[in-house]
């Protein structure tokens, strides 16, 4: 059981985490912006996340905390 927490206000919507996820579980939010005007990332199917942290490793902005 893994849990991802996003510091959404730090997210710049670059999408590097989206491509890093081996299961393709991340996506940029649809029709929603954070305070800075970026499209933040979301975990689409949380139950499938194994907490491999690939997303967090590729995130340039320390947005993602991973718990297992």
């Amino acid at each position: 059981m893994a849990k991802l927490t996003f510091k959404e206000e730090l997210c710049k919507g670059c999408g590097l985490c989206v491509n890093a996820c081996p299961k393709g579980l991340l996506a940029l939010a649809q029709g929603r912006l954070n305070q800075k005007g970026h499209t933040p990332v979301e975990l689409t199917r949380p139950e499938e996340c194994v907490g491999c942290a690939s997303c967090a490793i590729m995130c340039p902005d320390c947005v993602i905390t991973v718990e297992r």
Binding site: K12, C14, G51, P60, C62, V66, R68
Partner: peptide
């Protein structure tokens, strides 16, 4: 158990780098 989080040796300042700039990754490393 937390397996990945922002390292303590970084302050709380938000990086000014452009989206997708790898400076952020290297700072974190």
């Amino acid at each position: 158990m937390v397996v990945f989080e922002k390292p303590k040796a970084l302050t709380d300042k938000v990086f000014h780098y452009c989206p997708g700039c790898t400076h952020g990754i290297i700072h974190r490393l």
